[in-house]
Computed example of a mutant assay.
Amino acid sequence: MTKTPTNYARQFERVALLLVWALTIALFTFLIPNNFLNWGNFSIMFASYAPAALLALAIIIPLTAGDYDLSVGATLTLSASTIGVLNVWQQMPIGWVLVIVLLMGLGIGLFHSLFIIYFRVPSLVVTLGSTSLMSGVVQLITNSSTIGGIDNSLIMAAVGYRLFGIPYAFYYALAAALVMWYIFDFMPLGRKLLFVGRGREVARLNGISVNKVRVGALCMSAVLASAAGILYAGVLGSADPYSGLNYLLPAFAAAFLGATTIQPGRFNPWGTIVAVYFLATGITGLSMLGIPLWVTNVFNGGALILAVTISQITRGREASDIG
């Protein structure tokens, strides 16, 4: 079967972001030849952006089902801060603390589901409100201060052990992406998420329990965001009540940018991982060039707008092709 120019364009679209990422690496290698392209730099980048990768993966679960979760950054911060308060200040064993944090994430997901599914409040409103709510709680329980001295076993599990010179934190994000890819592509649950996101009434008429799927998506998003908070605390070795929120914008940009690659037109975990580290490469390179801090915000904001625009164009074309 002969490939048409359109087919070649589609195949190129699948790898376009990977090519742009390679060009970005080449550009910064040329501009910063002695510092940028070395394994130590990339090892640090892979580990430090692992929480952002988990956060971006958390975002695409409800997005696939047609809901937004703007609270993942606050959930990450609350989870990391809870680890600091319980483990450092209350001297609670780290194992029990991690269980509590993950259960707290489940509770946050159920809280969101109550208002979004059963009271029919738009997900943007609920999760934006809970972001402010959780941010206030974080400031209350931490006295607005950074908590250091987190159990060394968590730090070692995140960045102390390495494989091929890269801390385990990166591989946790890869493992999460692998599990999500399997669920999205090979399990009935993944197909149900996709059907619900593309048309809830059609999904309901086909026998899918739309509300249960949406509740599950919101709960898994919050639990994964809590796991990102655990990883964040392990990478930093402390609980910062503010900086976790800085991951929200890049994570959303990566979620939408990831929908333009690997499987264009769909939120997909591998595209999301690629997008996270493409953005991380850009931010790292700009920082090493000594660019002012405000440029990072401009870069993230511009990336989000561009990513959403390209994603909408791609999704619209896929929908018209199906139709």
Rank of each mutant, 00 (worst) to 15 (best):
A203I: 03
T127W: 03
K3E: 10
A50M: 01
S243I: 14
V179N: 06
A217S: 14
A254I: 05
F186A: 09
R162W: 00
T284Y: 02
T284I: 01
T82G: 07
G95A: 11
L86V: 06
T260W: 00
A251I: 04
R317Y: 04
L76W: 03
Q312R: 13
L140K: 12
I273S: 06
I25R: 04
L76V: 08
V137E: 00
R10T: 02
V223R: 02
P241L: 03
P122N: 03
L218N: 14
A251T: 03
R266T: 10
L102D: 04
F195K: 04
F170S: 08
Y242M: 12
L103E: 07
E318N: 10
G244H: 05
I100G: 04
G107E: 09
L154R: 12
N38W: 00
R214D: 11
L57G: 05
T4E: 09
L205T: 04
D240W: 10
S43N: 12
Y49W: 15
F28P: 14
W294D: 09
G160Q: 04
L178K: 03
L154C: 14
V97C: 12
F256K: 01
T284L: 14
A50F: 03
F170A: 06
F170M: 12
W96G: 15
W181P: 09
L18N: 06
G207N: 05
T284E: 07
R200T: 11
L133H: 00
A255E: 00
P122D: 02
L37Y: 13
Y242V: 14
Y8T: 08
G265S: 12
Y8M: 08
N300T: 04
R14Y: 00
L114I: 08
I94W: 07
L248S: 03
G229A: 02
V202E: 12
G229H: 06
